[in-house]
């Protein structure tokens, strides 16, 4: 059996990659994908500990996260399409009207 520390490292790595994507990329779709990466990193973490403790609590949480991710993507797609229609592109730095 693989030690849980390895999974933690993997999870942390994927999480950092996702964060990096959010902070650096300007494409709204990349935002969406990076968020998926973040959620998956968290899921891996949950499932790894679920195995360590020998119960399914972590797995159950992971299931909820999946449902949440699916919903989030559905909404996100809608937002991105509207963004695209209104600003002729999916660059998030273009849409700066919602301030002050």
């Amino acid at each position: 059996m693989v030690p849980p520390e390895y999974y933690l490292l993997l999870s942390a790595a994927v999480f950092c990659i996702g964060l990096f994507g959010i902070l650096t990329r300007r494409n709204a779709l990349l935002f969406l994908m990076s968020v998926e990466l973040l959620l998956n990193a968290a899921n891996v973490n949950l499932v790894a500990f679920s195995q360590v403790w020998g119960n399914v609590t972590g797995q159950t949480f992971a299931l909820f996260t999946m449902a949440l991710a699916a919903a989030e993507v559905a909404i996100g797609i809608g937002i991105i399409l509207v963004l695209y229609r209104n600003f002729d592109g999916v660059d998030v730095t273009d849409a700066t009207t919602m301030r002050w």
Partner: peptide, 17 residues
């Protein structure tokens, strides 16, 4: 203070992080 509210999502994400 309102100047930190730029309207650019990336900045918000950076602040969040």
């Amino acid at each position: 203070v309102r100047r930190i509210q730029t309207g650019v999502v990336s900045n918000y994400a950076a602040l969040l992080t």
